[in-house]
Design a protein around this nucleic acid. Sequence first.
DNA 1: CTATGATTAGACCATGCGGTCAAACAGTGT
DNA 2: ACACTGTTTGACCGCATGGTCTAATCATAG
Lengths: 212, 212
Amino acid sequence: MRSNSVQTSSNPTFTESARRTQIMKCAIEVLAESGYSGASLAEIARRAGISKSVVLYYFSGKDDLLSSVVFDVYGRAGQAITEALSHEASPGEKIAAYVRTNLHFLEEHPADIRAVVEIVSNARGSDGTHSFVPQGEDPVLAHFEQLLREGQDGGEFREFDPHHLAIIIRSAIDTASGRLVADPSFDLAAYTRELLSVVELATGIHRSEESS
Amino acid sequence: MRSNSVQTSSNPTFTESARRTQIMKCAIEVLAESGYSGASLAEIARRAGISKSVVLYYFSGKDDLLSSVVFDVYGRAGQAITEALSHEASPGEKIAAYVRTNLHFLEEHPADIRAVVEIVSNARGSDGTHSFVPQGEDPVLAHFEQLLREGQDGGEFREFDPHHLAIIIRSAIDTASGRLVADPSFDLAAYTRELLSVVELATGIHRSEESS
DNA sequence: CTATGATTAGACCATGCGGTCAAACAGTGT
DNA sequence: ACACTGTTTGACCGCATGGTCTAATCATAG
């Protein structure tokens, strides 16, 4: 992954970086609107108003383009989350901030998330196995699981299975992007509120103002 | 949807019903193993040891085949859930049974669920919109939401938003099929246990033996 | 002006797709 | 023997895909 036809390393031309971001942006749009199967190189190029060859001039192939999109979006989302978590002290606050920031990023960049979901859940190698889904250990999930574990070790939380609870909460986060496109009336703010209270109840966090 | 080339109504020949179920079974296998894009008519036919034309002889097209698979699996799953719910009286018990039965069906028929997920999340019409995802109202979700609402109206539950809580819990159910294929060490029984306790906490169900 | 490298368009290609079609095969009643 | 229906095959078609290649364009340095 991550290899270009034109040299990427030293001298990214103005045109090159501009074209790359433009093509990635169009790819995201097409992926979000028409899904994985609708995101052909021809369609992406048409959207960008350029020839199909240009796409393959700046990306070594479709795999490279999709990898770059995933890498870019993951990077930006991860940065936002890391930044948000740094402002919180207690594990309980960190977890709430984690959930809030994830859904906030989705609210501001719905197409980006949809595109990544389309790629991750559909891109497969020639052997038929997923190209982006980590087989053994998912670092994103492991990170969140660690957050839960820290709160539990600090005695702040109730007894629960951090691994499986992490899966449950992350699924609630990940499903939101699908809801957002399927249901125009979906209220993301209300969903965030509900999910946050569920997370509080599920972790059994000790908060003075929350105990009923 | 649901139209065949050969007459389906009155006289389903022995060969016909046998072939149809065989083809659907192979389609499910291929979908579960190789995903939507890997599930070509040629591959399904190869798996069944028959010619591609036979598939199109018993199904009017690929859409018909995939529709039939979704219809079949949904029917069997729905039947199992309805049956399980009929044995429970209180809303709290019904909801627990709902979650348990969903995950139990997944445990016994993982390929069927994977296949349906692949179809539902990937099949799109010529206009690019999803073919199986209901745009406005999802009956599956609405049914579960109604269960939550009944428990709430009965005063058995805490205050929560039934619609959004239904989405959260269903997402936890739906994510399990993906985990099952991505992580061979995934412990579905432990996951079910954890999810059931989260559901209890989230609904705030009043149970004598559960209050801490 | 010219040479050079970056950039672009468009023709082209092999492959795989869903689907059609005519012909052959198998059984069964007459 | 015949016809008839159900069943199966393999050749074939039109189309879209990801990708290659050649030639033309553009900018800029000499």
